[in-house]
Design a protein around this nucleic acid. Structure first.
Lengths: 139, 139
DNA sequence: GATATAATTAATAAAAATTATTATTTAGGA
DNA sequence: TCCTAAATAATAATTTTTATTAATTATATC
């Protein structure tokens, strides 16, 4: 079995089920995938896998920070294994998504990357000053 | 009527309907809003407005670049009026979204912004080299 | 290794979100 | 003002996501 995936589940306090191993392996194989792609890929290994199981596990895998959601304009969210901070090249034609290293990103001007950039978007997630003052209450 | 909104619609070749004016005004008022928020706000002005109309118009307003989708992890997409390139501060507690100027962003280290940054994400949209070579075919 | 128990799963139903259909209305040009 | 294509409201249909439940299973403890 995928020892890396198994250890990762254990390290995050999740039971090691074949479904979870399959889901994580599917994502690992694909790099990034949306729910349907994960489900389809997972079924090749585990044909009895239920779609609801995929949904439920994606949620808990995100909660335990094993996975990361990548929300994308005009597409269903994709999911990736948690890894070093990085950015994405998202193709507006085919929808493909590719990791890029964020480190040397700001030498991008000199055409080192074969990609027609149409739009650059930086999203900063965190906790706003209101919430910081209020504790953890939702509003 | 909202002259600015009316002119904007005309300039983008869309018919000026009260529904569209209402939708754009609602977004303008809110700054950013998801479908439900737009619908709710729009109904205060136009109580007979149909939800399907909101969906359909959001689509055409995005197609004509009058609106921009902001896909967000763990939330429904929000929509904003097209404007100068900028970034967003997205609160993981309350889900609030605030514009920030991208220009002086990289002096951010020195705590000028009252926001606990947990994650910075830069998404670059465009056309990949494959699609560039292939024309406009989808795959 | 066997057992108890809480968590997980498959199957399914239910709910929520989005898109399609259609008859009617309307915006904008002739 | 009239014509026509586009837009709308109402609704149905579809798609996506979540909840329910009985059966199964992972794992901790013996």
């Amino acid at each position: 079995m995928q020892m890396q995936v198994v250890n990762s589940l254990k390290a995050h306090g999740l039971k090691v089920t074949p479904q979870r191993v399959t889901i994580l392996s599917a994502i690992e194989k694909k790099g990034h995938a949306n729910i349907d792609e994960i489900y389809k890929e997972a079924k090749t290994t585990n044909p009895t896998m239920s779609l609801a199981t995929v949904y439920k596990n994606i949620t808990s895998l995100i909660e335990t920070k094993l996975l990361k959601e990548v929300a994308i304009n005009n597409q269903k969210s994709k999911y990736e294994l948690s890894k070093e901070p990085h950015s994405h090249l998202i193709c507006k034609e085919c929808g493909s998504l590719e990791d890029i290293d964020s480190n040397n990103l700001f030498t991008l001007n000199n055409d080192k990357i074969d990609f027609d950039i149409e739009e650059v978007e930086l999203n900063i997630y965190g906790v706003c000053n209101k919430c910081k003052d209020k504790g953890t209450s939702k509003n």
